[in-house]
């Protein structure tokens, strides 16, 4: 919000980002730029600092050094949907939203994720997939220029995951926020993102553009090739 530059075309800019926990350096001079409307996936071994980077971009983690520039609105979908259990689904979507007609905004957002019928339901009555879709509706209703997705599909079963992947692409194509998807799933990254990054030793150690039309097929030759490259980068023998 503070640094709104008129000519800015990036959804986020990170320069020389350092993050230490005690004497452990998790992010060590990391550079990253996410273009406006660009879908970026971030891979990395567990403990590599993927989530720390996302949390720093969300403003949840104070940084130890470097520059962080997020010009527009940021929205986050967490690994767990984090719905407020004592608010009905509709009120969860518009929580903290400052618009003239929140009811209509909630209805429109829930319609988009196919859950308009659940507007008056309590969150604890939803399935995992439904709750995650509400969480996406809550993020998108804020019209973010940067959408941060912190492994939001990892707790979903395989079938639900396929559906939510489609939904996310659909929503992204309609609203075109810049997206940073943190995931440990190489296939997921390749199916969804324009660009796949690998975080290693506190920096972006590798990146790959995925120039294929969506929806992509898992068994496409190019994806199979990229998968083995990425797996190798992640230290998994293909």
């Amino acid at each position: 919000m503070a640094t709104q530059l008129p000519e800015l075309t990036a959804a986020a800019r990170v320069r020389g980002l350092v993050k230490r926990f005690g004497d452990r350096t998790v992010l060590d001079g990391l550079d990253l730029e996410i273009g406006a409307g660009e879908f970026v996936a971030l891979l990395g071994r567990s403990g590599s600092g993927k989530s720390t980077l996302l949390r720093a971009l969300a403003g949840l983690e104070p940084i130890s050094g470097g520059e962080l520039e997020v010009p527009g609105t940021v929205a986050v979908a967490f690994q767990e949907p984090r719905l407020v259990p004592w608010k009905r689904v509709g009120a969860n979507v518009t929580l903290g939203l400052d618009v003239p007609d929140p009811e209509a905004a909630a209805a429109a957002a829930l319609e988009e994720v196919g859950l308009l019928g659940h507007r008056d339901a309590w969150p604890l009555t939803l399935s995992g997939g439904e709750a995650q879709r509400v969480s996406l509706a809550r993020a998108l209703v804020r019209r973010p220029s940067l959408l941060l997705l912190d492994e939001p599909f990892s707790a979903l079963d395989a079938l639900t995951r396929i559906n939510v992947h489609r939904l996310v692409l659909d929503l992204w194509e309609r609203h075109r926020p810049g997206v940073l998807l943190v995931t440990h799933d190489v296939d997921e990254a390749l199916l969804l993102a324009d660009r796949v990054l690998v975080l290693e030793s506190g920096r972006i150690a590798h990146q790959t553009a995925v120039e294929l039309d969506r929806p992509r097929q898992r068994d496409h030759a190019e994806l199979i090739r990229l998968r083995s490259v990425l797996l190798e980068r992640l230290g998994v023998a293909p």
């Binding site: 949840l60 929205a75 984090r82 903290g96 939203l97 809550r138």
Partner: peptide
Amino acid sequence: KLAELGQVL
């Protein structure tokens, strides 16, 4: 986690 959500929102 809900307090954090409040911060994000």
